[in-house]
Design a protein around this nucleic acid. Structure first.
Lengths: 195, 195
DNA sequence: TTCATTAGATACTACTTAGTATGTTTTTCA
DNA sequence: TGAAAAACATACTAAGTAGTATCTAATGAA
């Protein structure tokens, strides 16, 4: 990676960290800069404004991670019920990218920025829908090979699963990691209804 | 209501409105005051600081509403499965207190403030737990009168139901009211697993 | 090597922010 | 009715805010 590219990456990385904790609106550019060895000149060279940086955060950070960890793995799943359960369990088990206290960066951004900014809304919607679509395809394949109940609607189920995950991240902020286990146990009851 | 009491109430009401849209941290005291006929002197007479006002918002606004609309009605429910479904459906149908775009004020506050401020965390946790406990009791009664499966754990199920609601509010911000219908259909599948 | 472009540094601006200091008006109740 | 307390109003402060203007340093192709 070139030096300039690395600077841009570092700014995004630090922004990502701080925004994950404090939220987008309440993380100031000065906050970001004073927590690393970069000046305002560099920031506004790489980004037109704060919004531009925020949107880059989604496309360059959130989306690739979601694609690698969540979307792509779903394509090679044979049993959708087990596969989707495992996906969720792994996601909630991940303590490298997530801290139960601060929830999920993507879910947080949806909560905060989706209603306030159409550009954020679109990017977050596109990203979320791509995940939901991968789950949907997975369930549709499951219907074809008889692993999933014929009466269920894969698109509905996929959206519900994504929404359930978001809720788990919210409740986790209040109840801590213990709730993740609770969630998974109950999630199994729902998934059983799909088989 | 006395005049001073009314002033305090008006400040909270306006704060509630603005915070519902922009979030707690990003709603400034000046924002609130300039949108109504009240001055800074009045604000800081009624509230020690911004945090004090924010906490009052929970105890004086969010909590009473939650108690009247969600907690108390649950005590007179005979069939828990149907009762809990109806509670959720009514909640998601309510367009007076809620706008799908901005989600649920309580869920929003949990997302934003729970990780950042222990006082907020405690109040929000207490409030959420009271709702979950009401659901739990409802399910326990259902187990006793045979309307709910003996193998299910009422506390787990209650927390899952609350968490599911929070998720629905999050996903609603992205997909609009149509998702509420989707959610309810899938929620039924889960509830069926409890009976 | 030169020189234009890229990348970054520094100092500023105009505005917003929570909170305070100090005033005035309105209530309350003896 | 009069004075003390409650309920506000106004003007301020110090720190923070996104963004700009203008400079300097590095880089890369001719």
């Amino acid at each position: 990676m070139k030096k300039a590219e690395q600077t841009r990456f570092n700014i995004l990385q630090k922004s990502f960290e701080l925004i994950y904790i404090k939220g987008y609106q309440s993380t100031s550019i000065d906050d970001i800069l004073s927590s690393m060895e970069v000046t305002k000149g560099a920031f506004f060279y790489h980004f037109k404004n704060k919004e531009d940086m925020g949107l880059a955060l989604i496309t360059d950070f959130l989306y690739p991670r979601m694609k690698d960890f969540l979307i792509d793995p779903l394509n090679s799943v044979s049993d959708p019920i087990k596969g989707i359960y495992q996906m969720t369990a792994n996601l909630l088990k991940d303590t490298v990218h997530f801290d139960v206290k601060y929830g999920c960066p993507a879910v947080n951004l949806i909560e905060e920025m989706s209603p306030l900014n159409t550009a954020f809304h679109k990017q977050l919607k596109d990203m979320t829908m791509e995940w939901a679509n991968a789950i949907e395809k997975c369930l549709t394949r499951g219907k074809e090979n008889g692993k999933v109940n014929q009466t269920i609607n894969p698109a509905d189920a996929a959206n519900y699963i994504v929404s359930g995950y978001a809720g788990a991240r919210n409740m986790g902020k209040i109840l801590g990691t213990a709730f993740y286990q609770t969630y998974l146990r109950q999630f199994k009851i729902y998934l059983h209804g799909l088989s």
